[in-house]
């Protein structure tokens, strides 16, 4: 279980997170929604150690993550698929996946996991020798998710997997996310597409200017009047 308490993060003088508290229970899909600049990506980047926190605590299975190096955090079972996909464009699909398993030493298991990722995304297997930069946006997102899975995480964090994708492709990606979750991977999902995210989430948080303002199950928030107004495009009346 991931437990964040009273997390403060600032970029220079700009306060990005002002005391965020949230919990990600094992085996659940948890989503964090909010407008641009609310601090969603900052939360994820702080968990992986790419950004240093000012104060607060991030506990992962009872262990403090703040202050640990990135490679130790990742080998403790947390993986991130960064915003905007960020696949390595001049490397093949297979090489991209192997980079995902960079911190692992068990070769046989890595081969197995490559097969597992190819089962989840048959499109990637067809294109395993193709350069990642030549894939379509949807395929690149699949690759980014697959690459994150290659570190065999207990918790996978996805930063806006629907960014710039057609609605049908978004549905594909989300159905695979639920499938991955059913196989036992905890998921922390950040989304602008609040409708889709809330539909699959067990637990949801709303982040506004660095504070958690609302939380509840996905269905509760979907029904919440305020959320409908602010994030689902529902007008009063």
């Amino acid at each position: 279980m991931l437990k964040i308490e009273n997390l403060h993060v600032a970029y220079g003088g700009i306060q990005a997170l002002r005391g965020v508290c949230l919990e990600v229970p094992d085996g659940k899909i948890v989503t964090l929604i909010g407008a641009n600049g609310a601090g969603k990506s900052t939360t994820l980047r702080t968990i992986t150690g790419l950004v240093k926190a000012q104060s607060g605590s991030i506990q992962w299975d009872g262990e403090q993550l703040l202050g640990k190096s990135i490679d130790r955090i990742i080998s403790s079972g947390i993986a991130m698929s960064p915003e905007g996909r960020r696949v390595f464009p001049d490397m093949t699909v297979l090489e991209n996946l192997k980079i995902g398993a960079y911190l692992r030493k068990d070769r046989g298991e890595i081969e197995k996991d490559i097969k597992w990722v190819y089962e989840l995304f048959p499109r990637l297997e067809e294109r395993s020798w193709q350069l990642a930069g030549t894939l379509s946006g949807g395929e690149q997102q699949m690759l980014a998710v697959g690459r994150a899975l290659m570190s065999r995480p207990k918790l996978m964090m996805l930063d806006e997997p629907s960014l710039g994708l057609a609605p049908l492709v978004v549905q594909d990606i989300f159905s695979i996310i639920t499938q991955i979750n059913r196989q036992g991977v905890t998921i922390l999902l950040i989304e602008q597409n609040a409708n889709m995210a809330l539909k699959i989430a067990h637990l949801a948080y709303v982040l506004e200017t660095g504070n958690i303002t609302l939380s509840g199950t996905g269905a509760e928030l979907l029904a919440n009047e305020k959320v409908r107004e602010a994030y689902l495009g529902k007008h009063k009346g």
Binding site: M91, G100, R147
Partner: peptide, 23 residues
């Protein structure tokens, strides 16, 4: 080797490489 792959990852995208746990 895996080192070579890490080198290429750094060339392509430093942030993403770092997020993969590459020092």
């Amino acid at each position: 080797s895996t080192y070579g792959r890490a080198f290429k990852a750094i060339r392509e995208d430093e942030t993403a490489a770092e997020a993969m746990g590459i020092n």
